[in-house]
Amino acid sequence: MTFKNLAEAVDEKLAAIVPVLARIEQIGGSADLRDLGRHLIDAMNLFQRNPGIEAAADDLYGAAGALVTDSTVRAQPIARQLRLLKEAHLRFSSRLVGAVERAGRYEHLVVPAFPVRRAA
């Protein structure tokens, strides 16, 4: 089993979310929404229960869900929803980075780098 430090693991999770959000902005498919949900859960699992991170993840998922729903029915105005999605993404990213900075004083803190088994 290989190990990564927490900052690298968070950077990896945040980098995986960016293309999913880009697809949601362009296409707005429900498959992308499911992918986003999986990535958010994976990112939250890097930390012990943190209400701030959980709330930011809920906001991001909710903003993405609203964009997907409204893009399928061609509702307007989409610009406001895109802005809300970007703000939610920034909030989620800053919460994760802040949690890493608070945990940074623990040099020995590492996260095992192995895939999480998914329920079928």
Rank of each mutant, 00 (worst) to 15 (best):
I78V: 13
L33A: 10
H39Y: 09
A9H: 06
R49A: 02
P115S: 13
T69V: 07
H39D: 08
M44H: 06
L6C: 06
Q81R: 15
V73K: 11
L14H: 08
V100G: 02
A75D: 09
I17T: 04
A64Y: 01
I41P: 01
A55Q: 08
V100E: 02
S30K: 15
E107I: 01
L67V: 12
E107D: 09
R118E: 13
E54H: 07
L85K: 08
M44E: 15
D35E: 14
I41Q: 09
G98Q: 01
L6Y: 02
G62R: 07
H89I: 01
Q48E: 04
D32M: 10
Q81I: 03
A103M: 01
H89E: 13
F47R: 07
Q76C: 01
D11W: 01
A7N: 11
G62C: 00
A55P: 01
T69G: 12
A16S: 14
V18W: 03
T72V: 07
V97I: 13
L40D: 07
A9Y: 05
I78D: 07
A66W: 01
E25F: 04
D59S: 07
A55Y: 01
R80N: 12
L6F: 02
A43V: 12
I78E: 08
A66Q: 13
A113M: 11
L60S: 05
E8L: 15
Y106W: 03
M44T: 10
P77G: 08
L46W: 05
L36M: 08
L67M: 14
A15K: 14
F47Q: 06
Y61R: 11
E12I: 05
V68I: 07
L33I: 06
I27F: 12
L21N: 11
E8T: 15
G104T: 02
R95E: 12
V97C: 01
A75P: 04
A63R: 03
R102V: 00
A57D: 04
A66D: 14
G65M: 07
S94Q: 14
G52D: 10
I17V: 12
A75E: 12
I17K: 02
L36W: 10
L90E: 04
R49S: 04
Q81W: 03
R105G: 15
Q81D: 14
R80F: 09
L109M: 05
A15P: 07
A22D: 13
A7L: 11
S93C: 02
P77K: 03
R80G: 12
V73P: 05
P115K: 13
V116D: 09
S93W: 00
M44I: 09
G62F: 00
L84V: 00
P112Q: 13
V10N: 05
I24Y: 03
Y61V: 01
P51F: 03
R49L: 00
R80D: 14
L96V: 06
L96D: 02
A63F: 00
V97Q: 11
R102A: 04
A103D: 03
A99Q: 10
N5H: 11
F47Y: 07
